[in-house]
């Protein structure tokens, strides 16, 4: 018994490593990044599009705009495809086919982001350039590639949310004479709404944090985008592109870009957690 208590204490210490890791990450990124934001001035850092490290100009507004644009674009594509997939797999597909398609979606999640970026740059980018004009490397290309990349995340969480809806809701609706599709839109999607919202928020977090694929297809131009066909640079690409040779203030400014990204992601994750917790709370009561 005494030995068991000792083992429990050791396990507790080990179990704290995830949260300690998170704290360490936050501490080190903030320590490296926050001073330069204060030195440059938060207004200048976040609201200026002037990023010229050799002159000491550090404004990340272009990257903020770029990240926002590709994330929203990816969310639109991700939501349409994921919801369609989740609904068809849980409600309309014969069980055998659904069981065969799920590993395919998991495999989609396993493909390395560099491979997505590469296939995007050699197939999708020329297609956009010829069909729609512009350089091809664009918000549109990045949105499509990211939309496909976040599809497995959103789909799997949305499937869980749909499956968590009590069967009696669906049966009640069918018994009232609704078609399956009416049941989906009027009962299922409403009952599973918070789970689906959480799925979309987590998917957006994935999209805004993705790096290698975006570097390859987004064009990395330092300007706010005015159309879907404009090239953009995201917060993540800015870090990955310049870390290799940055030093001094420049390197610190890249860490400050990381701080910005970290804060955005933490807000998104907290929102997703809050939404899904509210759902769990409501289910307990109901």
């Amino acid at each position: 018994m005494k030995r068991d208590r000792l083992i429990g204490a050791v396990l507790l210490v080990v179990a704290l490593s995830a949260i300690s890791g998170l704290a360490l990450i936050a501490a080190f990124i903030f320590r490296e990044g926050v001073p330069i934001i204060l030195r440059v001035g938060a207004g200048q850092f976040f609201l200026s599009t002037d990023w010229e490290p050799s002159l000491g100009h550090f404004g990340i507004l272009s990257m903020l705009g770029g990240s926002l644009a590709v994330t929203l674009g990816a969310a639109v594509i991700g939501i349409v495809f994921s919801l369609g997939l989740a609904i068809v797999l849980t409600q309309f597909a014969p069980p055998g086919l659904a069981a065969a398609l799920k590993p395919a979606i998991e495999l989609l999640a396993g493909i390395p982001s560099v491979v997505y970026g590469f296939v995007g740059v050699v197939t999708l980018v020329p297609l956009i350039r010829h069909a729609l004009g512009g350089p091809g490397l664009s918000v549109l290309a990045a949105s499509i590639v990211l939309g496909i990349m976040i599809l497995p995340t959103i789909t799997s969480i949305a499937i869980d949310a749909l499956q968590a809806v009590p069967r009696s809701y669906v049966e009640g609706s069918i018994a009232l004479g609704a078609t399956r599709w009416q049941t989906v839109t009027m009962v299922l999607l409403r009952a599973a709404r918070s789970g689906i919202v959480a799925a979309v928020i987590l998917g957006m977090g994935r999209a805004i944090g993705e790096t290698m694929a975006v570097i390859m297809v987004a064009g990395n131009a330092l300007a706010l985008p005015h159309s879907l066909l404009d090239p953009v640079r995201t917060l993540t690409s800015n870090i990955a592109l310049e870390m290799g040779y940055a030093s001094g203030d420049h390197r610190q400014a890249l860490f400050a870009t990381g701080v910005t990204l970290f804060v955005i992601i933490t807000l998104l994750n907290t929102a997703a957690l809050a939404v899904s917790r509210r759902r769990a709370g409501r289910r307990r009561v109901g």
């Binding site: 998170l22 944090g209 990381g258």
Partner: peptide
């Protein structure tokens, strides 16, 4: 707290892991 740590860590982008 332990679960919150793991959930948040899961959401941290790889480039941030790289910087860290």
């Amino acid at each position: 707290v332990i679960r919150f740590g793991a959930d948040c860590l899961a959401g941290v982008p790889s480039i941030i892991f790289g910087l860290f």
